[in-house]
């Protein structure tokens, strides 16, 4: 997987990469899900689709991840695979494959409560896109 955790006092962060912005964003989402549980136990039995918008690439990343947090916190939806369409005018279409979280079957790791703008980064390095985001837990 194209992500790793960032060490930060008290909270948790993800650094993710991709050859395009949508790919790096999708990997950041998978990274976030991996903080919540071991996603190898998650089935791709259902899917959700939504449109995310932002005022900048950073804003778009935060708003998309916060939508995933919201879906988990309200409907227990946990994803394993994320597909993001092309970004046009700072909006993008997101499809997530996963299922409802079941504490009996899924490991309970971190309760992510929000994606933040703290030290957020969306940048291109040597032709690859790299993003960093920190979560409030």
């Amino acid at each position: 997987m194209q992500f790793e955790t960032i060490d930060i006092s008290g909270d948790a962060g993800i650094r993710a990469r991709g050859s395009t912005v949508p790919e790096a964003f999708a990997n950041a989402g998978i990274g976030m899900y991996s903080l919540i549980t071991d996603i190898s136990w998650v089935n791709e039995s259902t899917s959700i689709v939504f449109e995310a918008n932002g005022d900048s690439l950073e804003g778009l990343l935060v708003s998309y991840l916060n939508e995933l947090v919201f879906r988990f916190d309200t409907h227990g939806f946990i994803g394993r695979k994320i597909e993001i369409g092309d970004i046009s005018g700072l909006s993008m279409s997101v499809t997530v494959y996963g299922e409802e979280f079941d504490p009996g079957r899924h490991e309970q790791r971190l309760l992510i409560k929000a994606a933040t703008y703290h030290n957020i980064k969306v940048k291109q390095i040597d032709g690859m896109w790299e993003v960093e985001v920190v979560f409030d837990i």
Partner: peptide, 30 residues
């Protein structure tokens, strides 16, 4: 719980736009 987090998340966006509108320079978006 999640209720308060959502209120904060929602209003960070509102306040971010407001700061720009009222000409407040922010060293950090948070």
């Amino acid at each position: 719980r999640g209720f308060g987090h959502q209120v904060c998340t929602d209003f960070l966006e509102v306040m971010s736009r407001a700061a720009a509108k009222y000409g407040i320079e922010l060293p950090d978006r948070e």
